[in-house]
């Protein structure tokens, strides 16, 4: 039996310990904001926060997260999340939207660790989040906007 917190609520899972966290989030918890892109840690669409750090849920066996705190796009909160939400809406960042939940989870984690990231720091943190619509230029601009909006 695995016990963990999901968006602030205690959850349990009693099944195959190798079940990916992504499957639990989407299929059992019915939180479908977190996306399945590749399933093999290559695209970033499944990014969640595990104990406050970005983590690819598609390659995270559920047994590994016993006692951990998981936050998904549905539960993200705080000043960085609000700044990112406003900046994303302001620039109309998404195109098809499929990758955006993962992009936002990575962007919020970056701003929590580096409140004023440079272009290089943004590229370094976001390099594992692919976007087939190539919204990269708007993502980078929106992260700068979010950082600027949190100043002062």
């Amino acid at each position: 039996m695995v016990t963990f917190t999901l968006n602030g609520k205690e959850r349990t899972f009693d099944g195959d310990p190798d079940t990916p966290l992504l499957w639990v989030i989407r299929d059992l918890e019915k939180l479908t904001g977190t996306k399945y892109g590749c399933g093999v840690a290559q695209c970033g669409a499944c990014t969640v926060h595990l104990d406050g750090m970005p983590r690819r849920s598609c390659i995270t066996p559920i047994a590994m997260i016993d006692g951990s705190d998981v936050v998904t796009i549905e539960g993200i909160s705080g000043k960085e999340a609000e700044a990112v939400q406003t900046a994303w809406a302001g620039l109309d960042v998404p195109q098809c939207g499929y990758c955006q939940s993962g992009q936002i989870m990575s962007a919020v984690a970056l701003l929590q660790m580096l409140p004023k990231p440079t272009d290089d720091e943004i590229d370094g943190a976001m390099t594992g989040n692919l976007c087939r619509c190539a919204t990269y230029h708007r993502i980078r601009a929106a992260i700068h906007n979010a950082a600027n909006s949190m100043e002062g």
Partner: peptide
């Protein structure tokens, strides 16, 4: 790098990829 550390994907043991 910050935001893309090894443990974004790698954990404390080899982990099976299923499905």
């Amino acid at each position: 790098l910050v935001g893309m550390q090894c443990n974004t994907c790698h954990s404390e043991q080899n982990t099976p990829v299923v499905g």
